[in-house]
């Protein structure tokens, strides 16, 4: 199995993503520069977190129109799995690979902490390590993580099991009190209809060893790699 991590000017989680993938995969991941239009033949594409192009115009807007993203969108449409984390999630919504948009956090603050997430939709590739309803803990670090979609889109996401994770408490209770950033329906991550794209604001790649404070992220990547092998 081969993986690629897309790197934009202003990406700052690309190395973490590389380490997390390689820890589970055992072989090096390709780092692909945003200005390239050729993407190696890979089984997984990761769009990492950061502040691509300084978040100018809108977060993810300029990265979404970079040469490499045209290729990523094409590969995703033909079924290649795409993991889009944080700024990657913002970029994925800007390209239309995933529905909705990420707005400024409702409390206006940059939020940087570990959060409890309820695993909602079932997707063996991305959340096969966890049971539906289980609580996992990943860190968040974002200023624009407030997920917005119109009523119709929201109903479709919920109805078709395309919501991946919701901000919850340690018992898996989802409420306004656990909604850290104002996201509609507490949504922290979603799948596309085909199930080959996951976009999420929290960072599984930041909790991949006990030395970093937890291993829920390692379980996530181990499962992802196993499912693609």
């Amino acid at each position: 199995m081969k993986a690629a991590v897309i790197v934009f000017p202003g990406s700052n989680c690309d190395r973490d993503m590389k380490v997390a993938i390689e820890q589970s995969l055992g072989t090096p991941a390709h780092m692909v520069w945003h200005g390239d239009s050729d993407l190696p033949d890979v089984d997984l594409i990761a769009i990492p977190g950061g502040f691509s192009y300084g978040d100018y115009l809108r977060c993810g807007a300029i990265a979404g129109n970079s040469p490499i993203m045209r290729e990523v969108v094409k590969r995703a449409a033909s079924g290649t799995p795409v993991l889009a984390v944080c700024n990657g999630f913002q970029i994925a919504t800007e390209t239309g690979m995933l529905p909705g948009a990420l707005l400024r956090n409702a409390n206006q603050k940059f939020i940087c902490k570990d959060v409890d997430l309820k695993v909602v939709g079932e997707n063996k590739r991305f959340s096969g390590a966890f049971a539906s309803g289980q609580v996992v803990r990943f860190p968040v670090a974002h200023h624009d993580g407030n997920y917005f979609a119109d009523d119709e889109t929201l109903a479709r996401l919920e109805g078709e099991g395309l919501v991946a994770f919701k901000y919850a408490d340690a018992n898996g209770e989802v409420s306004d009190a656990t909604n850290i950033n104002g996201s509609r329906n507490n949504i922290a991550g979603i799948y596309n209809e085909a199930g080959n794209i996951l976009g999420l604001m929290p960072h599984p790649e930041r909790l991949i060893s006990e030395q970093l404070g937890g291993t829920d992220g390692k379980l996530f990547f181990d499962n992802l790699v196993n499912s693609l092998n």
């Binding site: 115009l57 809108r58 807007a61 300029i62 129109n65 919504t93 800007e94 529905p99 909705g100 948009a101 707005l103 917005f148 979609a149 119109d150």
Partner: peptide
């Protein structure tokens, strides 16, 4: 439509 505005929001 292509860049300046995100018509979702």
């Amino acid at each position: 439509t292509q860049l300046l505005a995100n018509t979702v929001i």
